[in-house]
Write a protein that binds this DNA or RNA. Structure first.
Lengths: 174, 174
DNA sequence: TTCTGTCAACCTACTAGTCGGTAGAGGTAT
DNA sequence: ATACCTCTACCGACTAGTAGGTTGACAGAA
């Protein structure tokens, strides 16, 4: 799903990779939407866990944000994939309502996390936050996801870091 | 293509909307990739034209950038669609090489335009440009495309403006 | 121990429908 | 006559999804 989007992967393709038959997947996930929802649910859970781990082991807000950026760069996987939330956004028109709602919730969780990190960074003077942290958090997520898209589209991973240059400029080295 | 991506639209769907048969489209565009390339080519041309028009009728860099933001907001079409370059990025894995190359070129054109606008804005003091305009242009495009994605994913168009808050903060009112 | 029933997991084989693409007939305007 | 365009009818491959059978592990009773 992260490589080809929601409409771009099939039970047949999945079955071949897993070494089982299509029907066996249908046994566990009757409809494609069930599988999609389960994958997104697990993804959102894991993402929150990783982000919370980052915050727990970082001393400054900038350190947290830097680790988050690295996470999104790694998720690019040399242009093969992107963050699931970005990949699903493009296929939003074919998503079921539960999936669409969970996608919004997942994005919301990341935005919340970014907001706390920006607040922390403002307090410890490691990040420059011009406006409301709640608004800026949305802007940062947009820049992260947009950077992934530009890098994936061109196949040039260096674009990812360039697209985050204005964000890096707001952070102090540590 | 802007609504459902490259893999998400079909000759059958297109034929029904156009009121002709599938085969007639194949007469003009033998393969789907031919149609995709033609659409992207025309899109890139028109985009450049519109952007140049904007620059010609704007007095300051900020005015140009503001008009560009409006353009991307309009392109969202209440969450139904997004910029073709963003829509294609998600389907990058199924794009033919010519399409992929043209996508990169199209993004490059926009980045070039943004760079000149940022330079202008820096000169007339209407935009704050922290680092290299060439790098910042990539960052701005990432933020624009990311803002579209977040807004489309949630169905809430207000998210688009929120995601551009940090960009707006760098521009002077006019 | 051994028989029996239950259950999840998996399989083969199939459905209806869609995908991109093709062959060739027929119409139409120059 | 000859391009040019649109059509009907079709192809093989693929899509999600279903029906029904096989396997093996486990639980309880004789």
């Amino acid at each position: 799903m992260r490589q080809n989007g929601y409409g771009g992967f099939s039970y047949a393709h999945l079955a071949k990779q897993a070494g089982i038959r299509k029907a066996s997947i249908h046994h566990h996930f009757p409809a494609k939407a069930d599988l999609g929802l389960a994958v997104l649910d697990r993804y959102a859970d894991r993402l929150v866990t990783v982000l919370d781990d980052i915050k727990a082991t970082s001393r400054t807000g900038a350190q947290s944000l830097q680790a988050c950026i690295s996470l999104y760069r790694t998720a690019l996987d040399d242009g093969a994939a992107m963050c699931l939330c970005s990949a699903l956004a493009a296929d939003q028109s074919i998503l079921t309502d539960p999936m669409s709602a969970m996608l919004t919730r997942a994005n919301g969780k990341v935005i919340e996390w970014l907001e706390t990190v920006l607040l922390m960074g403002r307090q410890d003077r490691s990040i420059v936050v011009p406006g409301l942290p709640a608004d800026d958090a949305v802007a940062v997520l947009a820049q992260l996801q947009g950077a992934q898209m530009l890098a994936k589209a061109s196949g040039d991973m260096a674009i990812f870091d360039t697209a985050l240059s204005s964000l890096q400029a707001r952070m102090s080295r540590s």
